[in-house]
Design a protein around this nucleic acid. Structure first.
Length: 406
DNA sequence: CGTTTTTGACCGGCGC
DNA sequence: GCGCCGGTCAAAAACG
């Protein structure tokens, strides 16, 4: 059970921040048929997973229509159920099970995330695991200028692997959240080869524990972004008409996040990956460290080309709304009570970095949650991508997000 | 000595 | 079927 303790709220700004998030949540919930979430709006476990489609096509009724796959994989939102861990910590659960019981009792279920996971068995609860957990999860990719090895998002992470990915000389590091032993959240960190000061952090999964205050900014940011995918999927495509007038430069994309760190910021690229990935580009036109968020950018290889970054507005990086700029600097966030060990090896000026990153993520969240024009853009992009068929795609648990976020 | 990081091996998915 | 690739595991090393 994931409850957010209001008393943890450190600062009026945070309160305001959460207000915005809750407003957004209400919007979303009202626009979706989801009902159970509305009962306990304070329970915040963001489920970025997709629904209606299993991760392994072998398990599903295989769909010949790729667009159908996309349609059914767009569900994002909060999972407010109490059985959260059983739903979201599958691979960790597997690990626990392996430690405590005989492994591989019956390798029938293939609901876990990783390929390895599929090799071993998730426990019997899997029967109750919604399909949402069987699909690849949405990912939120954050690009930001960062001098340290990882962005300090407030959570504790443990590195469990590193790989050199093809096409990028910079190694990709794999981290998992260690705030809670069974937290399924993972992140991947990779530097942009073209600009080593830009760090690409991809978050996947949902924390199954209350996130530290210091982590809520990022968690909420990524939650909001992911929720945007969901809420937008039920928005009319007529919103596309608003694109050209929008302040934001955005394109939506569902593509292998892996290719994200490549050179082209917007890339139309075929993909079989079903992980919806939304990218928050904080690095564009932003001075390092105190970066005002350059713009929000998400990309789609599936959406119409007109959405891919060159068709609405001037095509130039957007200008931020005034309030964003105003808050771009370090703002009154409480100093982190616990900083975790995000980056033990670096951090010469850690405080400054923390401040700037927190302000950055918070500002981003505000953009995501409060700017209707942006919502429209994303909505239009998704709508076009899914062929306008929203609402009907079985968004069982959708439409909510809250401070706990990812 | 417990925890974290490193790093080679392993596995499954996917494209050819 | 084969090879490439991304992601994860797990033993060893490093660290505090």
């Amino acid at each position: 059970m994931l409850k957010l303790v209001e008393k943890d709220l450190p600062h009026p700004l945070q309160m305001r921040f959460f207000d915005i998030l809750q407003q957004e949540a209400q919007e979303i919930s009202s626009s979706n048929s989801s009902n159970e979430e509305a009962e306990e709006p304070q329970l915040v476990s963001l489920c970025l997973g997709s629904s209606q489609r299993t991760h392994d096509k072998k398990e599903t009724s295989e769909s010949d229509d790729p667009t159908q796959d996309i349609k059914t994989s767009l569900t994002l939102g909060l999972d407010l159920k109490s059985e959260f861990p059983s739903k979201l910590a599958l691979d960790h659960r597997r690990k626990i099970q392996l430690e405590s019981e005989a492994p591989d009792e019956e390798g029938g279920r293939e609901t876990c995330l990783s390929s390895k996971t599929r090799k071993t068995t998730c426990d019997g609860e899997d029967n109750e695991v919604p399909q949402q957990e069987q699909v690849k999860r949405a990912r939120v990719c954050v690009r930001a200028r960062c001098d340290t090895a990882t962005m300090n998002d407030g959570c504790q992470w443990r590195k469990y692997g590193q790989k050199i990915s093809k096409g990028n000389p910079c190694p990709r590091a794999y981290y998992r959240c260690t705030v809670a032993p069974a937290c399924p959240v993972r992140k991947q960190v990779q530097r942009c080869p073209e600009d080593m000061s830009i760090l690409t952090t991809t978050y996947e999964g949902t924390h199954n524990h209350p996130v530290p205050i210091s982590a809520r900014a990022m968690a909420s940011t990524t939650s909001a972004a992911a929720s945007m995918l969901l809420s937008s999927s039920s928005t009319s495509t007529s919103d596309q008409s608003r694109l050209s007038g929008s302040t934001f430069h955005a394109a939506l994309s569902f593509r292998p996040y892996d290719s994200y760190s490549r050179s082209r910021p917007i890339l139309l690229q075929p993909s079989s990956a079903l992980n919806p990935t939304i990218t928050l580009d904080l690095a564009h036109d932003a001075p390092s460290s105190t970066s005002t968020m350059g713009h929000f950018k998400s990309k789609s290889n599936l959406g119409p080309a007109s959405l891919l970054g060159h068709d609405y507005g001037s095509g130039r990086p957007m200008l931020l709304p005034g309030y964003v700029r105003a808050q771009a600097g370090p703002i009154g966030l409480e100093k982190q009570p616990q900083r975790g060990q995000m980056n033990p090896s670096t951090a010469v000026d850690k405080d400054q970095q923390i401040y700037s990153q927190q302000s950055l993520t918070e500002t981003l969240t505000k953009v995501l949650t409060s700017d209707p024009s942006f919502r429209s853009i994303v909505a239009a992009a998704i709508s076009s991508m899914v062929g306008g068929d929203k609402a009907s795609t079985g968004q069982g648990e959708t439409g909510k997000f809250g401070p706990a976020g990812l």
